[in-house]
């Protein structure tokens, strides 16, 4: 009996401490204590993350050798196609520049990128966050978009501290992104129409696209990019590819599940768009 009441007393005492810390964190401290603790833990986290990369990399090499061979073949053929497209894109860029000059149009707004390192990830499976190694001192602000190399959307900054920031990933259920389908010339010529939607995170690090016009032609493998309509993410960032299409007769909109383009993560380097 005494043990039982001791437990309740200790539980109550610890709960009071936590509530006090929550109160201090919100109204007085402004995250300074968290920042100090994180400064201490920064180095060991970096080491563990590198060890994790090495372990998973080694595991993949051993168990995925067969896949690597076939993947290598498909990448080689994709590389040839991309080289062709790169030449075409370069020609178009030059043509575009020339036309802009002739029409006296202002130059395209260039994005300022700040390179950051992803230090750690959300420890629980309930939400999707990452911690990056730069913060307020480096000019980072809340809601700045975070991308990976290749213009792949990763997320946006949700909390900023002095020397680090937290990023809410696009795979989190609370992060809404306005997106549209990317249509290439062949698809446009074939009469495929543009469709928009709103994206949020879904179970198992996938994405869920909602509010797609019922008449639109959504197909497997469609490339989805940001539309820029939400005012947070600039237009044209790569989000992912359509994996599963959901078209219920009774539903007002079509829905789709997407595979995020940023997965699997191959590097810990990211960029914040200023």
């Amino acid at each position: 009996m005494a043990r039982g009441s001791g437990k309740i007393k200790l539980f109550g005492f610890l709960a009071v401490i936590v509530f006090l810390l929550i109160f201090l964190n919100i109204y007085i401290n402004d995250g300074k204590a968290q920042n100090s603790v994180f400064d201490i833990l920064k180095s060991p986290v970096k080491i563990f993350s590198s060890v994790g990369d090495m372990f998973v990399g080694g595991f993949k090499i051993v168990f995925g050798l067969k896949d690597i061979i076939s993947e290598n073949a498909s990448l080689r053929s994709e590389n040839k196609n991309l080289t062709q497209k790169l030449v075409e894109a370069e020609r178009l860029r030059e043509e575009n520049e020339l036309l802009r000059k002739q029409l006296s149009l202002s130059e395209e707004r260039k994005q300022i990128l700040i390179d950051v390192r992803i230090l750690s990830f959300e420890p629980s499976n309930l939400s999707e966050f990452a911690v990056i190694d730069k913060g307020r001192n480096d000019g980072l602000k809340k809601d700045m978009p975070v991308i990976l190399s290749g213009n792949i959307l990763f997320g946006k900054i949700s909390e900023v501290y002095d020397s680090y920031s937290k990023v809410i990933l696009i795979t989190d259920g609370n992060n809404k992104v306005n997106v549209k389908v990317f249509l290439n010339k062949e698809e446009k010529d074939a009469g495929k129409t543009l469709y928009n939607g709103v994206l949020s995170g879904y179970f198992g690090k996938s994405l869920f696209m909602d509010l797609i016009d019922k008449r639109s032609d959504v197909s497997f493998g469609d490339l989805i990019i940001t539309s820029g309509l939400d005012g947070i993410y600039p237009e044209g960032l790569i989000v992912g590819k359509v994996d599963i299409i959901k078209d219920d007769d009774n539903a007002v909109f079509k829905q789709a599940y997407l595979m995020p383009a940023f997965l699997p993560l191959t590097s810990n380097l990211a960029f914040v768009i200023k």
């Binding site: 001791g6 200790l10 810390l21 929550i22 959300e122 629980s124 966050f129």
Partner: peptide
């Protein structure tokens, strides 16, 4: 039970520092 609950508080606080959700959720 003392060791268990103190471990719970310690783990929860560290969890909260790394988590993007509001501070205190995992401590509680």
């Amino acid at each position: 039970y003392k060791m268990t609950m103190l471990s719970g508080l310690f783990l929860g606080l560290l969890f909260d520092i790394f988590s993007g959700t509001a501070f205190g959720i995992f401590s509680l």
